[in-house]
Amino acid sequence: MANTQALRRRIRSVKSTQQITKAMKMVAAARLRRAQNLIVEARPYANSLGSVLRSLAGRVGTHRHPLLQEREERRVTLVAMTSDKGLCGAFNSNVLREAHALVLSGRWEQVDVVAVGRKGIDFFKHRGIKPVAAFGDLMSRITPAVAFALAKSLAKRFSDGETDAIYLLSNRFRSIIQQKVVLARLLPIERGELEGGAQLTSYIFEPAPRALLDHLLPRHVEFAVLRALLSSQAAEHAARMTAMGAASKNAAEMIDSLTLTYNRVRQASITKELIEIVSGAQALGER
């Protein structure tokens, strides 16, 4: 039977773990709120950009802009978005499992991996896959400037002909308890996204519509990357919140069961001592 001192130590250690997981859950909840705010604040811009782009594309037609050029997909680039930190449940492994499967699937002749987030970088290093580009420490502070720079480097790969298509693989935030791994094509831009614009207004364009469209299409790509990063960030915090909530609950259960055992052991030892005293006294009395 376990001794009481060892049990006491065990309970203390589980309790301090629980304090950490509880704190992490609260931190994740606060960060999630902030991440959600960022998503909401980016929305007006995204909406206006989308509608302007659609009305422009409706006017000048989706002409042969380099970012719209569809090629046979032989060499593709896969951007896997993960987090920099762990302890967030299956958040990273979901993305990485999917990414690994896609690389091995043989759907394309060659898959170049771009790893975003330190977890992804480590994963590919262990699997012997060398990412063509790696961005660590990006998730901790997502700014439009950072996202735009990432998008620009991706767009350059595409327009230089180094790759035939670029896919984003990331967690999308659905709700606090649901994150979904989504594979979305970033480049070439899906024509569907530019069509269906209502032709309501005949604008004066300055400069010419085509020049404006050339100016706005890269921005559309940049914004898609920013949105994916923000959504992935929110999903990460939500996943961590759920994981830490479960961990705190498990710790509480463990403390309960350990406390029960501890009390039992303590009671048993008291009973044993009592029996010894009583039987000792009886033995004396019988003399």
């Binding site: 004066i204 020049a211 404006l212």
Partner: peptide
């Protein structure tokens, strides 16, 4: 106010 619709960089 009353400006014609305009899209400008």
């Amino acid at each position: 106010p009353g400006h014609a619709p305009l899209l400008c960089a």
